[in-house]
Lab assay of single mutants.
Amino acid sequence: MQNSHSGVNQLGGVFVNGRPLPDSTRQKIVELAHSGARPCDISRILQVSNGCVSKILGRYYETGSIRPRAIGGSKPRVATPEVVSKIAQYKRECPSIFAWEIRDRLLSEGVCTNDNIPSVSSINRVLRNLASEKQQMGADGMYDKLRMLNGQTGSWGTRPGWYPGTSVPGQPTQDGCQQQEGGGENTNSISSNGEDSDEAQMRLQLKRKLQRNRTSFTQEQIEALEKEFERTHYPDVFARERLAAKIDLPEARIQVWFSNRRAKWRREEKLRNQRRQASNTPSHIPISSSFSTSVYQPIPQPTTPVSSFTSGSMLGRTDTALTNTYSALPPMPSFTMANNLPMQPPVPSQTSSYSCMLPTSPSVNGRSYDTYTPPHMQTHMNSQPMGTSGTTSTGLISPGVSVPVQVPGSEPDMSQYWPRLQ
């Protein structure tokens, strides 16, 4: 039975679970980093996980050691009161100082060594604690504590007292930064006198190289990059290397530039699409467009005044059976039934097929058609009795279509119309 579990990581490298990497692998990681390889490249070359490479390099940059820390136990506290007071002093002298600059000053002034120097995250935590204590304490208590930490007896009751030896409130920041720059020169002199001055200088240079600022491109470089971006948004590694040799930039910087440029292009394309949609959409909808001609068919113009009344309900007709019959029939052209047409008796099958359309009241044959006459024609229609054979009435077949029909004066039988409509 094995005491430890061995495995293979996602890159194909072998590791022992819970145990640190061998010293030979750690040394190779540092050597590759000094030669300029990126952590992701080191991870692929040595088949070590990216997190492990970053952790080893980060500890090497901070402490200069590649040895693993002790497994188990607690780390001794490195942010001692003396170190905290120095950090507060540096922050007062130059409020814009960075944590890694404070760390360098602690090393250069001999406050800490490589073994007990606090990390950048520890210094940031100390600065946050100082800021929170400043908010919790009152103004007087804060000034007393700062005077105690600074070891001075001057008056701290006013704002300019934060910067000793100065009279203009805006000047101390520059003086403090100048003092810090002077301390940086002392850093070089002190570290050069040490035993491991060369190694420390190499480590600091490598650290500065990794902690780079934003790349500033010249106009020629920007023009070359934009020209390549117009050709393709995704250049391959050969195109990037050719462009890197042409404009004297690292291939990694060119790759990052193209990634950022593609993101910018997507944002601009989104804005262009929004403007295009806004320009195509009308600002207001016309009133006429809300009524579609496919839904509402136009009603033909009436030929006679009587045809303006298109349904039985508008003429005072309360018989719903006839109203439904007229509205359900398709529109037909106007025609006239003459008196000489043969009077065919209704076929029983045809009569039964339209039995649902006729009223059940037996008085329908005896009703006159003056009910369908509009009010303004009552006088004219009353002067001509319906009993004469020459009287013409208008029957409504569908809305908007008038059918003048000659009705025999002897017997106005409704059943004569249905064979004609089939």
Rank of each mutant, 00 (worst) to 15 (best):
S4I: 09
H5N: 11
H5T: 10
S6I: 05
G7H: 10
V8L: 12
Q10E: 06
Q10F: 06
G13F: 01
G13S: 02
V14R: 06
V14G: 07
V14N: 11
F15H: 04
F15K: 03
N17Y: 00
G18P: 00
G18R: 00
P20W: 02
L21Q: 05
L21T: 12
L21S: 04
P22T: 04
D23K: 07
R26H: 01
Q27H: 15
Q27D: 05
K28C: 09
E31K: 09
E31H: 11
E31A: 11
L32S: 03
S35Y: 11
S35H: 15
S35F: 09
S35Q: 11
A37K: 06
R38H: 02
R38N: 04
C40G: 07
D41N: 13
S43P: 01
R44T: 07
L46A: 05
L46K: 01
L46G: 02
Q47F: 11
V48W: 04
S49M: 01
N50R: 15
G51E: 01
G51Y: 00
C52A: 11
V53I: 07
S54F: 05
K55Q: 02
I56L: 15
L57R: 00
Y60I: 00
Y60R: 01
Y61L: 14
E62K: 10
E62L: 15
E62M: 14
E62S: 09
T63A: 05
G64T: 00
S65M: 09
I66C: 09
I66P: 05
I66H: 10
P68M: 02
P68K: 00
P68I: 01
R69E: 04
A70S: 10
A70K: 05
I71H: 07
G72Q: 00
G72P: 00
G72T: 00
G73I: 00
G73W: 01
S74F: 01
P76L: 05
P76D: 00
A79T: 05
A79I: 07
P81T: 14
P81V: 12
E82A: 09
V84Y: 05
S85F: 14
K86L: 14
I87G: 00
I87V: 08
A88P: 01
A88F: 13
Q89H: 13
Q89G: 15
Y90F: 08
K91R: 10
R92T: 05
E93K: 13
E93Y: 14
C94S: 10
C94L: 11
P95Q: 07
P95M: 15
S96I: 07
A99C: 06
A99P: 01
A99I: 02
A99Q: 07
W100N: 06
W100V: 06
I102A: 01
R103A: 14
R103M: 06
D104K: 14
R105I: 12
R105Y: 13
R105C: 13
L106F: 05
L107E: 13
E109V: 12
E109C: 11
G110K: 08
V111E: 08
C112G: 09
C112R: 12
T113H: 08
T113D: 09
N114T: 09
D115A: 07
N116T: 14
N116E: 07
I117F: 13
I117P: 14
P118I: 15
P118Q: 03
P118L: 13
S122A: 02
I123E: 00
I123M: 04
N124K: 03
N124A: 03
R125V: 03
R128F: 02
N129K: 06
L130S: 15
A131D: 07
K134C: 05
Q135S: 12
Q135H: 10
Q136A: 09
Q136S: 11
M137Q: 09
M137K: 11
M137W: 12
G141N: 10
M142C: 09
K145E: 08
K145M: 09
L146G: 07
R147M: 11
L149W: 10
N150G: 08
